[in-house]
Amino acid sequence: MDNYDVECALEICDVCKHFGGIIATDHINIMARSNTIFGIIGPNGAGKTTLFNLITGIYKPTSGDILLYGKSLVGKLPYEIACEGVARTFQNIRLFNDLTVYENLHIAYQKSITYTIFDGILKTKKCKEQEAKCAEISEQMLKSVGLWELKDQLARNLPYGLQRKLEIARALITNPKVMLLDEPAAGMNEEESEQLSGIIKDIRNNNDITIIVIDHHMDVIMDVCDEITVINFGKQLVTGSPYDIQNNSEVIDAYLGVGD
């Protein structure tokens, strides 16, 4: 893209993860530049979600380092990494199912709320001000993703596509520096995934954010990503622009099998 050096938002340096004898990710190197959309693709079981779990602290890497704007994330607990500014969605949607759409976002807005339990119980001025701000931001976010009309619906009752949308909104309201989307287009039809591409691009354009996407929908990936890396059986095959990836013989072999 640009000729001069762009700041690196998330850097994955030589990360390995072994589960017993199984090597889930093997010396992966990723440099996601600031304010870009980075795609990770690969066949099922390639270790893509493992990589996300390593970034968010659910697993600890066997070796290697993960840096967020130069700061190591290795050894931190999942909630600490979230507080550092890494938000994520899950492959199998994980919403607060029995709460309303509004409450889902309301809970996720944590960062600027600093009042203590005693403030909360005594309903001090500090508490009221921060709660009012939280309500305002939740409302804005719901309106901007078009879920405001559904705010009193239980999250579990939403259709699949909207649940995905809500999960993205919930990640976004934490005001992250890096957002990880794990198969956001899974189970969506063509029209829905096209819409999703638009949403992802809008998020990048309107926020100071770096997005990393895993997906199988090539149209979404090729459409939104500035840079893509391909993983197969835990090994990194190639990194490059969507055009490079589409014309790489190794990638074609991994997806379609090697011809005789």
Binding site: T56, I58, L77, P78, Y79, A82, C83, A87, R88, F90, R94, L95, F96, N97, D98, L99, E103, H106, I107, A108, Q110, K111, I113, Y115, I117, D119, G120, I121, C127, Q130, E131, C134, R170, A171, T174
Partner: peptide, 24 residues
């Protein structure tokens, strides 16, 4: 009704998701 109570409810609903939005 405060943030702290809501965080407890979030843990009941979905612990992993709660952690992913920064709840200890």
């Amino acid at each position: 009704n405060s943030k702290h109570g809501r965080n407890c409810i979030a843990l009941r609903e979905e612990e992993l998701a709660a952690q992913s939005v920064g709840i200890n």
